[in-house]
Amino acid sequence: MKKLLLLFLFTVSINPVFAQSKKKQILLIGTFHFENPGLDVAQINTFNVMSHKSQKELEDITNKIKRFGPNKIFVEWNYEKQDKLDKFYAKNTDSLFQKNADERVQLALRSAKKLGHKKLFAIDYNQAGFPYDSLVKGMQEANQLDLIKKNKEEMAAYEKSQNQKIAKYSLTELLIDCNTKESNTENVNWYLETANKAGKTDNFVGAYLVSEWYRRNLYMYSLIQKLTENKDDKIMVLLGAGHTAMLREFIKYDPEFEIIELKDVLK
């Protein structure tokens, strides 16, 4: 019996069918919008990524991403418009980096070109709602004065904190800061701590907004799962930091992936 057990354990150790499969590495990069269109609820100042200093940093960052070697790079671009992303990727050359400040260009496209990739992968899902005005109205109708005050204070504190960092930090420091545990927690907290409470007991406008945010990110994660092939052992995902904070929660319970931190890639 003991010999049979030892033989089984030996077989497990060498047989890939029995052995635990190696996790795929996912470089998850949460970022602020380099070209801030002012569409987010929080109004954050624009950081100049076109400066000589920032361009040198971007070259260094993308060289280190190349060294990490992701097989695919996923970006915040409407998944239904993959054909437009393909055309955009195919026609653009190095000169674009001096003209377009968008993070998808400066970080994702620049990295993909250095890696010799044929395309970027679009994973954004744009059909989820974000009824912020209805959320505030729901608080007012429910006379949730403390919650209204808390929401305003949180938003003001977040804007102040981010704008102070933009004035003080280098681009590399800003990107690393976007991916800290503190920043990720802050990005998720508002949804459950504030937004989810909004409305009267028979009005779930807050919970609806939160559920739509979860849905958008869950659909995006679904696309990552579907588009990652067996042969892909490393991938990179570049999204707004609010999205990556949510994806971290999904990946935590998905045994297929392990997160590689940006700060470790940049060492």
Rank of each mutant, 00 (worst) to 15 (best):
E212M: 10
L223R: 11
N196A: 15
L218N: 06
T201Q: 13
L209F: 08
V205Y: 02
E212L: 01
L218F: 06
V210S: 08
G206A: 08
I224C: 03
R215C: 05
Q225P: 02
A198C: 12
G199C: 09
Y214A: 09
S222R: 10
E193K: 15
M220Y: 01
V210Q: 08
E212F: 00
Y191E: 13
V205I: 15
F204Y: 12
K200D: 09
L192C: 11
Y221E: 05
Y208P: 00
Y191N: 13
Y191V: 03
K197C: 09
N196T: 07
D202V: 01
Y191F: 14
Q225D: 11
N217E: 02
F204K: 13
Y208G: 01
M220K: 02
A207I: 04
L223I: 06
A198M: 13
G206K: 04
Y214E: 11
R215P: 00
V210Y: 02
Y191C: 11
R216K: 10
Y208N: 09
R216E: 02
N203E: 09
D202W: 02
G199D: 03
W190L: 15
T194Y: 07
A195L: 13
Y208S: 11
R215S: 09
A198T: 05
Y219V: 05
K197M: 15
R216I: 05
G206Y: 03
S211F: 04
L223N: 08
W190T: 14
A195D: 09
L192M: 13
N217W: 00
V205T: 15
W213C: 02
W190Q: 15
T194W: 01
A198K: 02
A198R: 01
L223K: 13
G206P: 10
K197Y: 11
Y208Q: 12
Y221I: 04
L209T: 02
W213K: 01
V210N: 09
W190H: 14
E212P: 00
L223M: 13
Y208K: 10
D202K: 06
V210D: 11
G199T: 05
G199K: 08
E212C: 03
L209G: 00
K197F: 12
N203C: 07
I224V: 14
G199E: 06
S222T: 11
W213E: 03
E193T: 13
L209Q: 04
N203H: 05
Y191H: 14
L223A: 08
V205K: 07
Q225C: 13
M220V: 04
R215D: 06
N203Y: 02
S211M: 11
Y219K: 10
L192D: 12
S211I: 00
Y214I: 13
N203D: 15
N196E: 14
L209S: 00
N217S: 02
K197T: 06
W213I: 06
Y221R: 01
F204E: 07
Y208F: 11
W190R: 15
W213R: 03
Y219D: 08
N196I: 15
S211P: 00
Y219T: 04
Y208V: 07
Y219L: 12
V210M: 14
A207W: 02
L223T: 03
A207Y: 06
T194L: 15
S222D: 12
R216V: 02
L223H: 03
